[in-house]
Amino acid sequence: MTVSAHQDQGAPLHELRNVMMRFGGVVAVDNLTMAIPKGSVHGLIGPNGAGKTTVINLITGMFFPTEGTIHFAGKRTDGKQPHEIAALGISRTYQNVRLFSGMSALEQVMTGCYLNRDSSLFQSFLGMPIARANWRRVREKAMHLLERVSMADRADELAETLSYGEQRRIEIARALGSDPQLLLLDEPAAGMNQSEAREIGKLVHELCDAGLTVLMVEHNMSMVTEFCQSCTVINFGRLLITGDAATCLADPEVQAAYFGRKKHA
């Protein structure tokens, strides 16, 4: 997959326009404009506290922006509730894994398939044949997703008994359950070793080839150069530069802001 092949893919799938997010006196996101090209893996990078997670929270509706607008597939999403935004086709993972305590790996992923259940809560309660058939289908789908993240053999295990890397993979499978158009990954490879991280990178690439658009927050620069076609660099909530990954990372201002403070692989 070459960089240029993805550069000219036309209209962005997701856009932030002049978005501002203030928490009391703290400006976490400052007049940020960002476009995620459709069908690509877009990196969102910046030093600690730059506002990356806040951007993801804004996109998923967990926070409402103080100013500015957010657009997904031609629709305004700022001001919409998180479950409405999820229903439009946006899904995410969390920087500090947030799986449901007490649920098995399979149940986690099935919960992620909630939007795909194809039968009403009432039909499911009554145990109608169509609801049962749908339940079985979702179960199979969830098993299939667990296979994709190489966790199928741990399907019945409680999330809290799994290792950190395994929990991260379950979380990705859960996020894919709703068949999203846009997947937001908040440091998906954090706490993983190099080979595990590359597995994740390859999975993301496969998903992208299948038509998914991905926004990936990542600290590991080799991951960014290898797996992201384009990226946006922010610092103190402000845009530093956006464009194809290699150009961004070579930019002197980025080097100063990023590598000046933090050394990464």
């Binding site: 998923t60 509706g61 967990m62 509730q81 998180p82 479950h83 935004i85 999820a86 229903a87 899904s91 995410r92 969390y94 947030r98 449901f100 305590s101 007490g102 649920m103 149940e107 919960t111 992620g112 909630y114 939007l115 859960r174 359950g177 709703s178």
Partner: peptide, 15 residues
């Protein structure tokens, strides 16, 4: 179960 454990995560699942 999802809503009880973590309502904001459940919401991003469309619940």
């Amino acid at each position: 179960r999802a809503v009880r454990e973590d309502p904001s995560v459940a919401a991003t699942m469309g619940i």
